[in-house]
Computed example of a mutant assay.
Amino acid sequence: MARLIPTLCLFLVISAGAARAACVGTDLIDTLPPAERALVESETALQPFAEGNFWRATRGEQRVIVAGTYHLEDPRHAANLDRLRPFIEEAGVLLVEAGPEEEAKLKEAMAKDPSLMLSDGPTLPEVLSEGEWKTLSGALRARGIPPVLASKFEPWYVSMTLALPPCAIDAAKQPDGLDKMAMAAARDAGVPVRSLEPWNTVFRLFAELTPQEQLAMIRTALPLEDRVEDLAVTLGDRYFAGESRKVWEYMRLQTHAMPGYTPEAADAEFARMEETLVTRRNRAWMPVIEAAAAEGPTVVAVGALHLPGKGGVLALLDEAGFRLEKLGF
């Protein structure tokens, strides 16, 4: 797997990311040479619904409000919630990736069965080079995790840990992003909250990866350790600009130049990642969304990277006969 996976976990899997106020860095897309930045822009423009985090989909009398979320606390969420709240108050249901019941089941399962995160194979020091383990150990200590403990984790779980920069550790302990704020608004309005997928989706997704692919997730993340705050700031700032897809295209193009990669190999890996981590989940969500829309006004609040692209929620709604209108935060 390409080095994109750890950073995309911020959007796709867990309530992890970087609070802009806590992390200080530079937007990496802004620092690109003009030609490279233009390429990122042009590749992003090829994707349907490439920009925007707030949409209305209508099909006959059915109405679905789609909000792309960012999972950690940020003061900029307040204005977005003000925009979203009236639609939640009028809705029959709020659909999210993981509702309160699913989150509780996940926490309970992880507490009762640590083997969900532990590997039954060789430890990380046994499969990584001495230099790789030394770098990884330093990165783990910076996040308050003893390397001896992490050495027994599944590699995918360690890579998710690397996705969270040290500057955001405190914020991640009590994630309060737009999705959580939307759920609180629904609770206040007496609107039911339902999950789009089972609680164990995370584990099923990563179980599909081979041990070699999981180790590659760590190996390709380690060279980014000195830029992890920049990546966090880039993710956050581009989200609030409605440009989450642009980060995907930026990382794909950056991977073209990685040692051991060709553009063709990188693009193939990214296509597989998108299918496994994004598109397949989006397709599975569609029957849930359509069933809810048939019952009444529906609000869908999911990670922003699920919205754009050929297999994004917006394109799937379009294919299902909904008319899409960008509302804008």
Rank of each mutant, 00 (worst) to 15 (best):
A98W: 00
G236A: 11
A216Y: 02
F329V: 15
L81S: 10
R323M: 13
A35I: 13
A16G: 07
W285G: 03
P33G: 06
R20G: 10
S159K: 03
P308Q: 02
L205G: 01
E103V: 07
Q62D: 12
G328P: 05
S115L: 13
S137V: 06
H71T: 07
E126G: 04
A2T: 12
R281I: 05
T58F: 05
I29V: 15
V247Q: 01
G92P: 12
C23K: 01
Q174K: 14
A21Y: 04
E103D: 04
R281N: 11
G25N: 13
L307N: 03
L327G: 11
G242W: 00
R227T: 13
F329Y: 10
R219F: 02
A268G: 09
E225R: 08
Q214K: 11
R187G: 11
E290G: 07
I169L: 07
V191N: 00
D74T: 13
V288T: 11
K326V: 09
T276Y: 00
P297E: 12
I169D: 01
K112M: 15
A232W: 01
H71A: 12
P211F: 01
E108K: 14
L4G: 10
G131T: 09
G99R: 01
A45N: 03
T276H: 12
W285K: 07
G260K: 13
L209A: 04
L224F: 06
A38M: 13
E243R: 15
G68H: 02
P147S: 14
K246Y: 00
